[in-house]
């Protein structure tokens, strides 16, 4: 591999190697404020490889490689190199991370306490976190929240926010252009544009928080709030974690403690403004 870079996001460090210069140059620009791995050591390696040697020149298509891989990861076009790198880093975390319980959830922090939001793709958890991150909250992460195993804290994984489809225009209206990556059209998830978190979210990425409220947002439904029973919450979080089974008893202990101490609510909302208002109201009632 002739091109490469290395960066750290929260507790995880990555080395990214590429057959092409362009994706690395883009990563270096967008991740300019992120720290480098200590002593050059990286937890994971992601490789953006030419599928065949000649494809580096002719209709280049990227084959994603790394320490942990899904066998059927699709090759992406070179124009989607940034997405390939992001997918590669996410895959390493989802399949290989063992130091904390990994929840497929976004999170934001205020006064040392965290609001965690989990749900399916399209639930709006990423967009809500991005919007809150511009409104006085510190973004901990839009995709993964890391639950400490031996104490009741969460850690952030504030990689770039992956904005999809309608969320792109919504955020473009309130964030300066230089914090955006290029618009990636026609990806497997539609249009995607990456947003660099605010500088303080990056500078404070190693500061954890105490989880205070857990939400299951659902975008596109009439407004409703429903408290979740602990048992339903526990079951859904085991499914929202990629490493719960691998962590064994430590994962069980961390998750039962989280479910026992953090109130959880299902939140349906029809618009971003409505979702934000509901989140702030629930935080005022339960977040302190």
């Amino acid at each position: 591999m002739r091109h490469g870079t290395a960066l750290r996001i929260g507790p995880a460090s990555f080395r990214i190697a590429s057959d092409w210069r362009a994706p690395i140059a883009l990563l270096d620009r967008l991740y300019a404020d992120y720290p480098r791995p200590e002593a050059g050591f990286a937890d994971f390696t992601v490789r953006l490889e030419a599928k065949r040697p000649w494809r580096r020149w002719l209709r280049p298509s990227i084959h994603l490689g790394g320490d942990y891989m899904l066998p059927d990861a699709l090759p992406l076009s070179l124009a989607h190199g940034l997405l390939a790198a992001e997918m590669g880093m996410n895959l390493q975390m989802a399949l290989g991370w063992r130091r904390q319980l990994l929840l497929h959830a976004s999170a934001v922090e205020k006064d040392g306490r965290a609001l965690v939001m989990t749900g399916e793709s399209g639930s709006g958890k990423s967009t809500l976190a991005a919007m809150l991150g511009e409104r006085g909250w510190r973004l901990l992460g839009d995709e993964f929240t890391l639950l400490d195993l031996d104490r009741p804290g969460v850690r952030g994984f504030p990689r770039m926010v992956s904005l999809k489809n309608e969320a792109i225009a919504a955020m473009a209206g309130e964030v300066a252009g230089e914090r955006f990556g290029p618009l990636l059209r026609d990806t497997p998830k539609g249009a995607i544009r990456h947003l660099v978190p605010r500088r303080d979210a990056i500078a404070r990425m190693d500061e954890g928080a105490l989880p205070a409220v857990l939400l299951y947002p659902r975008f596109g439904h009439a407004a409703a709030v429903r408290p979740l029973q602990k048992s339903e919450n526990f079951m859904r979080l085991t499914q929202a974690s990629t490493n719960y089974v691998a962590l064994g008893e430590r994962g069980y202990a961390a998750l039962t403690r989280f479910v026992d101490t953090v109130p959880a609510f299902g939140v349906d909302y029809a618009s971003g403004a409505e979702g934000l208002a509901t989140v702030e109201r629930l935080w005022a009632e339960h977040g302190r």
Binding site: Q229, K230, S231, E249, D260
Partner: peptide
């Protein structure tokens, strides 16, 4: 390990 949640119990 049995952990009471509400009407249900987690059992590891």
């Amino acid at each position: 390990i049995v952990t009471p949640l509400d009407s249900l119990y987690a059992l590891y």
